[in-house]
């Protein structure tokens, strides 16, 4: 017990000393291999999109998640034209509801890239406590903004951050 506490303390001290370094290299996307709806494996750290990427964690049973993605759906063509952004909707539905992901996304005519994270590997790696949780990634793969929760109007703030990236 004592041993683990001291070990931990040392870790933390080490971390905080190294903080400066960590801030220079902004937080990158972790590498997790997920499947898309076509059954292809996709490595989350090498998705290969040009321009900014929005990663939105959602589930078919999460109403605010669906509200967020359906709201952005209406704005998405304009967002893409103006900033070249790509939205990746990562479903955390497990085997119970995973089969509903594709029918739902199609019925809603979403144009997003959809990835499946049925055992929560990417969710855990990204430090997501609960859905919806949305991340913005710049073209170098750095996580530059994140927001937990969805309230109507949050999409405007997200878009402001996307625009900021464009002007850099």
């Amino acid at each position: 017990m004592k041993l683990s506490i001291i070990t931990l303390f040392c870790f933390l001290v080490g971390f905080s000393f190294g903080q400066e370094e960590a801030e220079k290299n902004m937080k990158k996307l972790p590498s997790v291999v997920l499947k898309n709806l076509k059954g292809k494996s996709v490595n989350t750290s090498e998705m290969g999109f040009e321009g900014p990427v929005v990663i939105s964690f959602w589930a078919t049973w999460c109403s605010p998640c669906k509200k967020e993605l359906n709201t952005i759906h209406d704005l998405y063509p304009d967002w893409q034209d103006e900033t070249g952004v790509t939205l990746v909707a990562v479903s955390i539905d497990d085997e119970k509801t995973k089969a509903r992901v594709s029918p739902y996304a199609n019925a809603k005519a979403w144009d997003y890239e959809i990835l499946l994270d049925p055992n929560g590997d990417f969710k855990r790696a990204m430090g997501v406590n609960n859905v919806p949780h949305t991340f913005l990634i710049d073209s170098e793969g750095n996580i530059v903004y994140s927001h937990n929760n969805y309230a109507p109007g949050d999409e405007d703030e997200l878009y402001e951050h996307i625009l900021e990236l464009g002007s850099k």
């Binding site: 080490g14 971390f15 000393f17 190294g18 960590a22």
Partner: peptide, 13 residues
């Protein structure tokens, strides 16, 4: 402590 100095160069999340 030494090991965690090394760690600090990677990504923590």
């Amino acid at each position: 402590l030494g090991a965690s100095f090394l760690f600090a160069q990677g990504t923590i999340s």
